[in-house]
Design a protein around this nucleic acid. Structure first.
Lengths: 343, 343
DNA sequence: CTGAAAGCGCTTACAG
DNA sequence: CTGAAAGCGCTTACAG
């Protein structure tokens, strides 16, 4: 616990439940019932309590509610990433927006936590220590044990993006396979015959699934699926991958790049090497991020609705917390091709 | 309180402070002192407690600590925006990253809250209700009363970006004035004589200060500062503003655009109208976001370190919470020109 | 340096 | 439908 920041403490001002009860002429129990929207309270009592609450501008102490009720009314959004670089990307921002909009008006707070590899145990202890009722996990890499650990410790969890090698934890993901498939089919329909791909990280399901979809699309057209290069989510790695592909296959006439941010780097290399897009090389990206519309030329891309992803994850988690049954274990959200100038 | 999501509750498993005390052979008081890193605990007792804690994998219940100690060990990051669009922009992401890195290892949790205009009162009640020890406020527009209200209610607050018309609340901002000034000076040094600007929103200090800096720079060179058009933080509005400027002054040979995301739209219009950048029109942006380096041509821009902004805000707030004195009321962070191809 | 006891502000059976 | 009382798991003077 060393390193804890000192924070001065002093009793917060404002009314307590006791005063609300007195003003409303009822017991604390009844005030509590009204606050928690429980049935079996007379309309008269309910009205009096509401009156007193707004008159006193009463706001219940959350810590006391959590302690007494063993319910935190909060969920965590856990971002599992080394350098916390995810915070900068539009995927994360979209998810965050979705989580927020789904939470609006529900009186459930959002705790944002980064999982540092070194204090995985701290994180698990915190999350299962009653501070939150459940957790949303995003940007997992490889076969991260975190979701399973939390799940086994009894904490309701929903993962954003299919976790690798983990079948038992509920997740929500975009239909990356179909996205990759549509991208490939589109390039085929354009008459291209030498179609490459720049994949995302192979230790993430998104990277794998988009690649599988692309493979399937080329297979349908009886085209060879041999031109594959990997990149991470940076323009620089996209540039390197594109350069490597051009070296290997100077005759390539199309490329599916598994993320717009990677495609931006690929476009720069194509331009530098004098290939016209789309005349010489057709390019399809993925995400439909802002970069796609501002790219030169504007990028044809596969749109995924990350905000919807965030909303759906949250809906699924709250459903589990409320004990609803019949919830789908996992969900896949549709993707769609957005046509612009690059392909 | 209606609309509250039902969350099933059940007592969390795991050890309590009582068990730690028993195993360590001390009282709960002593365990508490160790947990809180207080002085006046014998090394022997301290070691025994640490031993017991790690053996039992004990994690203190935060709600109980908050209730008993009236200290939440949490701060809020409040994003004041209508459509919550901010969540998508790199400014917010950078701030968030900075806040997080400053919080790392301090055992202070981060609550993310959006301030919806309709429930401003709810937000104030929540924030001053003991759930958090302080608040960071970002992306305020106009003369938002929120910081002053919170400040007057006794909640420590730090604002990111100078708030308009509010002198008494501590803030941290980038030195937007100097940034605008440097941009103008650079364009002047290039020999440009008809220099325009596309401003950011005029109801935000960032927009005003960058404009003031630009004005000052043209003033130094005895150039007229009459070519001004306003945009919000979208490429579309940048395109409209640029088009309007070109209509008004077909002879303009340079433009300072107050944000990269706006500049991207301006570049598209310049290109569409056959103006070469930088030969015919030199362009300087602001932010040094990813868009600046991926733009065509790559954008000369004023860099602001938003991550540092987030870190500094957090440092300032934690300092205030710890009761440190001699803290600067407000801080301005340096900006610097990054030269690329566009100017 | 240490411990017993009170108390933080709620919720929850329990009894009515 | 309602209230009195116990209890959630800690921290904090207070006394030693």
């Amino acid at each position: 616990m060393s390193g804890m920041t000192e924070i001065d403490r002093h009793r917060r001002p404002g009314p307590r439940i006791e005063e609300v009860a007195r003003l409303a002429g009822v017991s604390k129990s009844t005030v509590s019932r009204v606050i928690n929207d429980e049935p079996y309270v007379s309309t008269k009592a309910r009205d009096a309590v509401h009156e007193a609450i707004s008159h006193l501008r009463y706001s219940p102490n959350q810590a006391a509610r959590t302690l007494a009720g063993s319910r935190a009314s909060a969920i965590a959004l856990v971002v599992s990433e080394q350098g916390s670089r995810v915070l900068g990307d539009p995927f994360f921002a979209g998810v965050l927006r979705g989580v927020h909009s789904e939470l609006a008006g529900r009186h459930v707070q959002l705790l944002l936590m980064l999982s540092q590899p070194q204090d995985h145990d701290d994180l698990v202890a915190y999350l299962t220590g009653g501070h939150v009722d459940g957790a949303l996990l995003v940007s997992l890499h490889g076969d991260d044990p975190l979701p399973r650990r939390l799940h086994e410790l009894g904490l309701p969890v929903v993962v954003g993006g299919r976790p690798l090698g983990e079948a038992s934890v509920p997740f929500v993901d975009s239909d990356n396979f179909t996205g990759g498939l549509e991208a490939a089919r589109h390039l085929v329909s354009l008459g291209r015959g030498r179609i490459a791909t720049v994949t995302g990280p192979r230790d993430m399901a998104a990277g794998q699934d988009r690649l599988s979809g692309w493979r399937r699309g080329l297979g349908e057209a009886q085209l060879p699926a041999d031109l594959v290069a990997e990149a991470d989510f940076t323009p620089e790695s996209g540039a390197s991958a594109m350069a490597a592909l051009l070296d290997r296959a100077p005759d390539l006439d199309a490329v599916f790049v598994a993320a717009d941010i990677i495609a931006v780097g690929a476009l720069q290399v194509l331009h530098a090497r004098g290939r016209r897009v789309p005349q010489d090389v057709a390019v399809v990206g993925f995400d439909d991020s802002l970069l796609a519309s501002t790219a030169t030329p504007p990028l044809t891309t596969v749109r995924q609705d990350v905000e919807q992803l965030g909303r759906t994850m949250t809906w699924r988690l709250l459903g589990a917390l409320a004990g609803e049954d019949g919830l789908p274990p996992s969900l896949l959200l549709p993707t769609s091709l957005v046509r612009r100038a690059s392909a």
